[in-house]
Design a protein around this nucleic acid. Structure first.
Lengths: 204, 204
DNA sequence: CTCGTTTTGTTCTCGCGTTCACAAACTCCT
DNA sequence: AGGAGTTTGTGAACGCGAGAACAAAACGAG
């Protein structure tokens, strides 16, 4: 489920606040969801709660982390070291959640050798070797839209099975490859759409 | 609808490729959705297609842009000029889609005066004045999670009505405020979850 | 030991969004 | 001009996820 990370974050917050036990109501409020939905999600993982009491925060946190694969380190490759790639490489939220950036790749030879966040930028052609060496399963695409499909194809070819795509393009890959897309400007456009609707409704 | 930006981008791509007319099938393929869904979405805006022919690419593009408010410029304020704030300020995708970063704000006095993407970083306390001066309706939060709620409150207080939140926190704001959340590490965690499931299924 | 209280886990219903399928409408060819 | 072939716009069915409601279970008080 896509909500597990949110629950995990809410549990971490509760744990840091000194809470040891919480009800589904409490956790649902912290995660911003309905309590029934939260209980249903958690029951899908197993029965980790105690009726009449609630959930043990640390225990549940560990169980969710285990289910999500957050108890191990995931090596990650980032392709495209522009503004966005820079920020992603430096983003502390990745490291703290078990993601290790093992390589930064860029097609632009001018950037090779540059050190970003303690990692050297290497040629894109090194992709296959790096995937093999580190057992990388997850790749991040932060290239311009025009290059994204080619990068994705070569990632799949090199053995990567999950792709996080920041380029504003629809990627065509096999159904066995998990693709997640983040479009920074799309979100702003949706907000602008709402503003626009508000404005037109007021004038009407 | 949240899919309009995707359609708009697909139309732009088609237009740049020299296509003047396209069927709903073509556009749906380019946008990665079902053609019936696309037609229904478009019919919600009006009847801009011609039966037996298809849609005029540029005409439809203009209509969608108008509906989304992309025909005018939207002033935007970014709060929190860390790694992510830097990347967002430099992100060309915003400017090219009608968003103009009119101010960069940060609570850290050390950063004030620094110029990022041609804009000077100013104190967070200038928020209200900037919103008034430029008529800002959209704010972007790129601060750490701990500061996000306070920033959101002050944004609402200053008159901002749409917030794009990159901080990993659930914001509590009035229902009249549109909030969109982007959690960079959440997406990676979902991918790791899929990888984890693949791995456990193979061993079972 | 029993009863009341609390909270989980689960069943059931409802509503929305997606998709299928078809009629209306337009173009082109003969 | 008429018919064949396309393609849009929309009505109807399907499926899935969300929320409400309830039964099962654990704890505590008397």
């Amino acid at each position: 489920m896509a909500r597990l990370p949110v629950y995990l974050r809410a549990l971490t917050t509760l744990s840091e606040a000194g809470t040891t036990v919480c009800s589904s109501e409490d956790l649902a409020a912290a995660a911003g969801v309905n309590s029934a939905k939260l209980r249903k999600d958690l029951s899908y993982l197993g029965s980790y709660g105690t009726r009449g009491v609630g959930y043990d925060v640390d225990y549940l946190r560990y169980q969710i982390a285990r289910e999500m694969g957050a108890t191990r380190d995931w090596p990650v490759v980032i392709v495209g070291i522009g503004n966005l790639g820079h920020a992603l490489a430096n983003y502390s939220g990745f490291r703290s959640r078990g993601f290790r950036v093992v390589a930064l790749l860029d097609a632009d030879g001018q950037r090779h050798g540059e050190v970003v966040a303690g990692v050297v930028v290497r040629p894109f052609s090194d992709l296959r070797a790096i995937v093999r060496e580190h057992g990388v399963a997850i790749g991040v695409i932060a290239t311009p839209a025009a290059a994204a499909q080619d990068v994705a194809d070569q990632m799949v070819d090199a053995g990567i099975s999950s792709i996080l795509n920041f380029a504003p393009t629809v990627l065509n890959v096999g159904a066995e490859i998990a693709v997640s897309k983040v479009d920074l400007s799309k979100e702003l456009q949706v907000l602008a759409y709402h503003e626009q609707r508000k404005a037109t409704q007021e004038t009407a």
